[in-house]
Simulated scan of single mutants.
Amino acid sequence: MTHENLPGRLFQMGIVVPDMKAAIAYMQTTMGTGRFMTLPADPKVTWFRGNMEEVSYEMAFGYMGDMQIELMMPVSGRSTYAEYLERVPTGGVHHLGFEVTEFDPAAAEMEARGFQAVQKGSFGDTRFNYYEHPDDKGTLVEILYLDSAVKEMFATIADQSF
Rank of each mutant, 00 (worst) to 15 (best):
T2A: 13
H3F: 13
H3L: 14
E4H: 15
E4W: 09
G14C: 11
I15W: 09
A22R: 15
A23C: 12
I24W: 10
I24Q: 12
Y26V: 13
Y26L: 15
Q28H: 12
T29D: 15
T33I: 05
T33H: 01
P43R: 11
P43C: 11
R49A: 11
Y57H: 14
E58P: 03
M59V: 14
A60L: 06
M64E: 06
M64C: 12
G65M: 03
Q68W: 00
I69G: 00
E70Y: 00
L71F: 00
G77I: 06
E83W: 05
Y84V: 01
L85A: 02
V88N: 01
H94A: 04
H95K: 03
F103Q: 03
P105C: 09
P105W: 09
A108F: 04
A108R: 08
M110S: 03
E111A: 09
R113Q: 04
Q116L: 13
A117L: 00
V118F: 05
V118W: 06
Q119F: 05
Q119L: 06
G121C: 05
G121A: 06
D125Q: 15
F128D: 08
E132N: 10
H133M: 08
L146V: 01
A149E: 13
A155K: 13
T156C: 00
I157H: 03
I157T: 07
I157K: 01
